[in-house]
Design a binder for these strands. Structure first.
Lengths: 337, 337
DNA sequence: CTTGGCACTCGGGAACACAGAGTGCTAGAC
DNA sequence: GTCTAGCACTCTGTGTTCCCGAGTGCCAAG
């Protein structure tokens, strides 16, 4: 059904359309790509491709435009991920190397990715799941409030103010802190809930309500902040692009953490570093846009996801190359720190 | 030159134009606002106003549109800040009261302001200047790296990884931490530089290089992070609006901290809670947009700025009311915590 | 100073024609 | 059977023209 030449035609259509943003006709196609066949033959192939739903024409007597299905075939079988140039790689490396802490790594990454792809970049903060507790700090703010600070080995810091059920002296806070650190230091975050389960019982009765309050906030922090924080950059790149969905909807989605999270999608557990590409209507949350994403993180410490969002009409090979490269470099940086 | 009626005409033009987004003509004006004069008279006034540069006409034989100068006069002399409705106030209060930490306060504030004004909201993080040190923590990450965590009384947490010039044992880190806390606890952030100036000399010689490194990072943190962090929300509200400058430029400015900072402007030291309004070309950094901003923070603890950015054609009284109200509520919340 | 009247200007929409790109189809060539 | 050339057809987008109406500026009278 789809012989070699028809695939070549589809590839040519996608490439031309992506670069010119205009429906591509049979004549131009036969000329620009040396297909060694006449426009008429190309037209026949086009008719077949349209029959199968890979391309479509905006109106009778206009050129053809790839459908989502067409892009899908292109991405799966007709294109190769395009590696970055040496200059680009060096730029990435030096730019990311300058980061001073986790926040900075994430901020730099998302900006970098936006600039490289000229799309909107989205980066999820590394989750706490695989991290371990480096230190727990309790800082008295007033006699009924303490600040709980949780520092992990990945350099992440979580903070929460805890309202205490009763007035607590500083010495008792210090005691609790010591107990907490003795109990949790170096332990994986995922094991924290079980580790603290029986903690109140091991304390003096008068400390239990306070301890319980603090622990509940601690657990809340672990669960809620788990993998919620997501940042984006490069919204300015949306200005030129045209989506089938309104620009307003895209901007709204970007500011909605939950939607962003869904857009990035789940990391497949078996091949976490594989590139995920969702094209147009394949994406149930924001149609008319495409998302190229991947997991990142060091080795067995698969942490989070990053990617870019753009119009369906996107240069997939280049974008995929950039996303993959950035993910690798960030993973390296994180592994080193 | 500008008698009472001419001012009334200008006010009417601004109000009509803001609500309809269409150049307003003499006839419609004389009807809608009961000016008790004929269109011809209004025309004469309009001619005078145009002569003085308060209004202009897009083309011959079209209605008039306010100029930046016209909006300025309107804001300064012809309008009253419009207070929020009771329902809106209650909504603000409950929404802000749910915040769990400083990050959360800022995030909620910026979203709230964006929603209330239907513009882009911009909020600067409270600066550290007036804050005091609550606690300094040094957490060993490896034998040549420690994490420096600075906790302030406003609930802000700054963290930085410090690369040490030599291998340092944990006990020495603990010692340094104790010294640092003894020295800085409760002190104003602005006094930190002088307080630590002679600190290395008071330590054992072998501790001095390490201490110097850590202190330099600490000072860097204070200076660099001083008042740089700015967040925005409501970019989706830009979708409908039309700026004389391109949408792309606005989005780019929003992602550039430095530009945002300049847009918000300086807090005037004598009346920090005054509303600042910059209209169109008055704003050297991003022409074609208006900014309504104010300082916020509790009492003598004037901390930072917040505001909104929108098209020059903006409902100034309502926007000013919202900005002022939100600033007050946030100040309250911050004072209470 | 205000008002009614009047001639004038100009933008924007409707109607129209037209060139050009692109298509589908069919008949002939390889 | 597959490819090619030719041809008639169908659109969109663009340029032109025309006209309506909103709005103006000016003038003379109240």
């Amino acid at each position: 059904m789809l012989d070699e030449r028809k695939l070549a035609v589809l590839r040519a259509i996608v490439e031309d359309y992506v670069s010119t943003n205009e429906p591509v006709g049979s004549k131009a196609l036969a000329e620009r790509h040396n297909l060694k066949v006449s426009p008429a033959t190309v037209r026949n192939d086009m008719a077949a491709l349209e029959e199968d739903g890979y391309i479509t024409q905006p109106h009778t007597s206009a050129g053809r435009v790839p459908t989502d299905k067409g892009y899908r075939l292109f991405v799966d079988r007709l294109s190769q991920v395009k590696p970055l140039s040496g200059a680009e790689r060096r730029a990435i490396e030096t730019f990311l190397a300058g980061a001073v802490d986790l926040d900075d790594v994430v901020t730099r990454t998302v900006r970098l990715l936006a600039q490289l792809t000229r799309q909107v970049a989205v980066v999820q903060y590394p989750t706490l799941t695989r991290s371990t507790v480096r230190h727990v700090e309790l800082v008295p703010l007033s006699d009924r409030r303490v600040m709980l600070v949780l520092i992990t080995n990945t350099g992440r810091v979580e903070q929460r103010v805890v309202e205490l059920p009763e007035v607590v002296e500083e010495s008792r806070v210090a005691h609790l802190r010591a107990v907490l650190n003795a109990c949790l230091d170096g332990c994986g975050l995922s094991t924290v809930p079980e580790l603290v389960a029986d903690l109140p019982e091991r304390l003096a009765p008068e400390d239990r309500p306070t301890a319980a309050t603090i622990l509940s906030v601690l657990l809340e922090t672990l669960v809620e902040r788990h993998d919620e924080k997501i940042v984006f950059a490069g919204a300015a790149n949306l200005a030129g692009a045209d989506f089938s969905v309104g620009l307003r909807d895209v901007l709204e989605a970007l500011e909605e953490q939950v939607v962003l999270m869904r857009l990035l999608g789940e990391t497949s557990t078996d091949t976490p570093s594989a590139l995920t590409v969702r094209i147009g209507s394949e994406n149930p949350y924001l149609r008319g846009t495409s998302v190229v994403a991947t997991g990142y993180g060091s080795g067995d410490n698969q942490l989070a996801r990053l990617g870019v969002l753009g119009p369906t009409r996107m240069d997939y090979p280049v974008t995929m190359g950039a996303v993959r490269a950035v993910a690798r470099y960030v993973s390296q940086i994180l592994a080193a720190s």
